[in-house]
Structure formats: structure tokens, C-alpha cells
Design a protein around this nucleic acid. Structure first.
Lengths: 136, 136
DNA sequence: TATTGTTATACTCTATAACTATA
DNA sequence: TATAGTTATAGAGTATAACAATA
């Protein structure tokens, strides 16, 4: 079939992102985590007592949508909430959450290394700077 | 906030793809098209009498999900179906569909050019080959 | 007045299973 | 037996509006 779409960077960007996301989702599934769960756990681990609102701003997730995401992590025993003041809650990893987060980080690092390994060497180091220019 | 995620190519891939998709969606909205509509119209224009199943295979969209997509394009008067044999239907653009498709292609080409222009020159030509290695 | 956390809700996208009819 | 088109449905993901309580 004639298909001019793959020559478009924006189209290839979406297809590559979808392919990578599907593969990572499959691997993180072994830890009963989705990508967004892993992102939240990593950020909470790096920023103890961070608030739900701050996490949402960092990940471009709206406040209202953070509620079920955090509830899921809390129900799984991976994070804890404690009141900072009357209206804010600080989030931290539980011991179990820290352990799962470390496993997820190891898994993600391996995945990222494998992703890069698929890219021909002469293009490899250009991917991240090029992507950064598109969203940061 | 400490955030190690942007250093991960897979994460940046998703963020860049989302940012690009949101912007293109906004522009195509002026033509009352979504990205998937534009992709379908372009492929149908390039491949007259293509079947719904073949389109789905090319775009990794399942047969069942093609039904509402094509119905929408047909209801908008952009595509037509005519029986190839007892079970297959050939899809073609209507005159109006061809016109809208041309407008979409012009819009997309401008968008793609602007995307590439944002990437520093020394990285620009590496993006598409790097992405291709991740999904093709 | 702005922000935090929350509830409720709706819409889109996608995945799965099943069915009919035809090649 | 495999394929094309379709229907129905369920699950994610996301967007919007509104509310109470607090900074």
C-alpha cells in the first residue's frame, strides 16, 4: 500500500512512542504497575512529602485525575499520606513502595538501554536532544 | 522538584509525542478532523478502493474500531463505499473529501516543517532515522 | 482570593468477543 | 478455513464542572 505517513516526523514520533509504551507497559505489568504508576512512585521517591497537586503539575495530570491514581497506589500499600497542614498532604513511599520502585527503576533502565541499542549508532545520541526540543 | 524522568528517552518520546499530537489536533480541528481522520483520508486518497481491513492493518487499528471511524467520514460526505465483491468494500474520496484531504496535507506539511525547525540543526536529520529504528 | 483535595460525570480511544456472510 | 464487515461491550485515559475546606 502506498503510505506517505511514515515519512512524517510527527507520525513516526507517535508510532515510535506507542510501540515503546506498549512494550514498557508489558514489562511493568510484571510488577502490577502501569507507566503512570512508575512515574508517580519515582517522583515521590525523589521528593518525599510532595503533594498530589505538585505531582500533577510536574506530569501534566490534572488534580481531579490524580485522586484515583494515588488511591490505587495507597491501596496497594506503596505510598502513605500524612497531613502537612490543614489542606495539603505529603506523600511518601512505604518500605514496600520503595522496594517496588527500585525494581521498576531497574526495569526501566534496562528497557531504555535496549531502546537506545536499537538505534543505529550514528543517530543514537541525537534522539534525546531532538526530543527535548519538541516538548521542554 | 527533582525529576529524573526527562533523562529517559522513552519518557521524553512520550512527552514529545503527546505535545506534538496536541498541537496537530488543535490545527486539524479547524477542518473538523482528528489525526486519525486525516491519516485515513490520506491513505484512502493514495490507495483508491482500499478496504477497511487493509487500512486497519496499515495503521494498527482493529477492524471493529474502523467501523465508527469510517462511518464518521462517510456521514461527513468525505468518503464513499462501493462493493468490490460480496464481502469487501472499496473506499474512495468524494470530491469534497479530496478537497479536505488536500487542505489537511498542506496543514500537516506546515506543521511537520515547524516541528523540525524547533530541533537544533545538528540533531534535526537524525530524528526520523532514530524513530524509524524504534517501530518499523 | 487562590489553592488543595475531592466527587461526579462524560467523552474518547481501545480491546475483546461474538456473529453473519463471503472468498 | 480464512477473511470482511459489523455489533455490543468493557476498560482505560482524560477533560470539565463543581464543591468544601484551608492558605
Amino acid at each position: 500500500m502506498r503510505d506517505p505517513l511514515p515519512s512524517l516526523p510527527g507520525y513516526s514520533l507517535r508510532r515510535a512512542a506507542n510501540a515503546a509504551a506498549a512494550e514498557l507497559a508489558s514489562r511493568l505489568g510484571e510488577l502490577n504497575l502501569r507507566q503512570v504508576d512508575a512515574s508517580l512512585l519515582i517522583l515521590i521517591g525523589e521528593n518525599p512529602d510532595v503533594t498530589a497537586s505538585a505531582l500533577g503539575r510536574q506530569l501534566d495530570i490534572q488534580r481531579a485525575n490524580m485522586v484515583p491514581l494515588l488511591k490505587r497506589l495507597e491501596d496497594a500499600g506503596l505510598i502513605e499520606r500524612k497531613a502537612i497542614d490543614g489542606k495539603s498532604q505529603g506523600l511518601t513511599l512505604t518500605a514496600q513502595g520503595a522496594e517496588i520502585t527500585q525494581q521498576a527503576r531497574t526495569m526501566i533502565e534496562r528497557f531504555e538501554a535496549e531502546l537506545l541499542a536499537r538505534i543505529p549508532a550514528q543517530h543514537r545520541d541525537h534522539l534525546l536532544p531532538a526530543l527535548d526540543a519538541l516538548w521542554r
